[in-house]
Amino acid sequence: MVENRPLGNLLSHVVLIFGVALVVFPIYVAIIASPHPPGTFLRGVMPLLPGPNALENYRTAWTEGRSRAGTPPISLMLTNSLIMALAITIGKLAISIISAFAIVYFRFPFRIFFFWIIFLTLMLPVEVRIVPTFQVVADLGMLNSYAGLSIPLIASATATFLVRQFFMTVPEELMEAARVDGAGPMKFFRDILLPLSITNIAALFVIMFIYGWNQYLWPLLITTDPEYYTIVMGIQRMVTGGDSEPLWHLVMATVVMAALPPVLVILFMQRLFVKGLTETEK
């Protein structure tokens, strides 16, 4: 600091407390609303203090969901979300790491061509080519399956690009030293490159897990069987699925539980996550 002015600092704190309040407010509201009895939301303004029905509401949500509207219990949706998020994350990382390895550490015919094929996927988010992609998955018989939920989202130009960026920063001499030491490509990959990439892979893991967990449109389209509903899309079904006003207390309990896993991941791995985002995504 060049200088420290008490007044300026006070102003900064005021602005930041306002900012934090703005950021926290929606989740606060959700936490407050979730333990209220259903009657609370029929009249007047929503409460700003928690209600008494925490245990009951969460148990209902966890075990029954909103069965009248056709949504399965949260426990099932959470499991589905976890399976989908992990499958997407691990799949993305695995195929991105090996393809980045091929692109950086080998020279072969059509290398640039393959790079661009992979790269094109970055330019085509699922939302913009949604109808034909759905048709392909339907033709392959992958609707209502974990494979259908995850495999089409596994190809990742972003992850490949980020891993490639990292590999480019690994000193040339390490690979040369390994070669002089008698290591072939896969041995070098396993003994040297992967152990060196652990931090970066972990950071990517956080980012990709959140991406996978928060998928919305894709599961919405390809799951018609509630057995395969994920929690993020399930919330939408709870909000719009009934014929009456949403059952806010159950919706909010679901919101809390849907947001909790990725938020926890970020809070516990904040340093790694911030590093992964800012250092690789350049």
Binding site: P171, E173, L174, E176, A177, R179, V180, D181, A183, D191
Partner: peptide, 15 residues
């Protein structure tokens, strides 16, 4: 690896 040589690198290239 087949040439029966060993090399010391400028930046050492230690793993």
């Amino acid at each position: 690896a087949e040439r029966d040589i060993a090399m010391v690198f400028q930046n050492y290239a230690l793993y």
